[in-house]
Design a protein around this nucleic acid. Structure first.
Lengths: 213, 213
DNA sequence: CGGAAATTTGACCAGTTGGAAAAAATGTTA
DNA sequence: TAACATTTTTTCCAACTGGTCAAATTTCCG
């Protein structure tokens, strides 16, 4: 009786496959409409099955959302976890930025799911934010501070540095429509991520002030 | 018959007042739940009136949303409009960043309303993005490019520069929960905007690479 | 005051929502 | 193939959704 209900863990091939299909469809819907704006019917149709059939695999709308959110949070924090205290500061930060930008490019739906959750005040994720996330950021902020103390990078606020990396990279997933609209047809194509990568490297390395001499 | 319907323009004191109350309440609801996630009942209750009463002042949910969106877009673009080609480049950019950050601090709900709209693919704002916004950004990008040509600021992509300013400043409104959670009780208070301002100035001016000598 | 205009309310409606129940269909395995 | 477990469909429901309408109330102005 203390067992996890059958639906929580897939036991058959069909369960595994269908759950994946459902989660993928749900990610599409939740990431664009948010939790309250999404409907089970919508998800079911996108998954190519009837609503009651979908509810055979997940007990509720909330369960699907929870699964997506926890699943993506893990993925989401990988790049920051990879920031290596033993590595060379500037290349470490550069590759962190690059990796985060790649995530925005390759997992835009996950980024938007998270953004939706934040906009709503993180009702389902506040514990993770104040727990695991804060712990991880505190840890990496110390690493960055030690790099500053060694004079390897300029002295600033490590927390806001991390925020600025999150903001600038995720922007290309969350505000994709705006980015495309502003860049127009000619520059809004696939090349925009390389342009962004080049720009962000410039920005975070040297800022805007012209080099002297 | 070609008149704008009475409800569009307030004629009495009560209409003016109530419409303001409704718009304020609707801003709260729309900015946290998005368009589809918000309900008229919710807005009406937040505005302290019954649903039919609210619908006496606005003909539909969409009308309220449209009013909020167009109203805020104007406000939102003011700082960029103020970027002066004749001014000193570095101070101009610095004060643009500062102003955008102040907007994130003073109008977080408007920022979230806009963010929600972007996440959903800008169904109600795509015209503005491809029209007015693109035109304005094209214009200001040229200004920035001329500053680069004069050697007043370092040479990079002006579009992505603008994106990065939007991203880093709006982050403090849209991801406020996360920012607070990560900074914790001690640093997550009112001082976070000043810290952010200081950091962003550092970042955009000089980047992270340590100064030589 | 008194009447007209503006405002508010209560009852209502058709469509949608998340979800339950049970029966029917399908798969699996001895 | 028979017995069993899994999967799918059909039907249904109560709550909620955006919105209407007429009646009741309040405000405004001469």
């Amino acid at each position: 009786m203390t067992d996890t209900p059958a639906k929580a863990r897939p036991r058959t091939r069909i369960q595994r496959e269908k759950q994946d299909v459902i989660l993928d469809a749900a990610l599409n819907v939740f990431s664009t409409h948010g939790f309250r704006g999404a409907t089970i019917d919508q998800i079911a149709e996108a998954a190519g099955m009837s609503k009651p059939n979908l509810l055979y695999y997940f007990t509720s709308k909330e369960e699907i959302h929870r699964r997506l959110l926890t699943g993506m949070l893990d993925l989401w924090l990988d790049p920051l976890r990879a920031l290596d205290a033993e590595g060379d500061p500037m290349p470490e930060l550069r590759s962190y930025i690059r990796r985060k930008l790649e995530m925005a490019r390759d997992f835009p739906r996950e980024s938007r799911l998270f953004a939706n959750e934040m906009l709503q005040g993180a009702p389902h994720a506040i514990d993770v934010l104040e727990g695991e996330l804060k712990t991880l950021v505190d840890d990496k902020a110390k690493v960055i501070e030690s790099w500053m103390a060694e004079g390897k990078i300029r002295r600033t606020d490590p927390y806001h540095l991390i925020f600025s990396i999150w903001a600038t990279t995720q922007h290309y997933a969350d505000f994709d429509v705006q980015v495309r609209a502003v860049l127009g047809k000619d520059r809004g194509g696939d090349g925009r991520f390389e342009d962004a990568a080049r720009f962000l490297e410039h920005l975070f390395m040297d800022g805007l002030r012209p080099a002297k001499g």
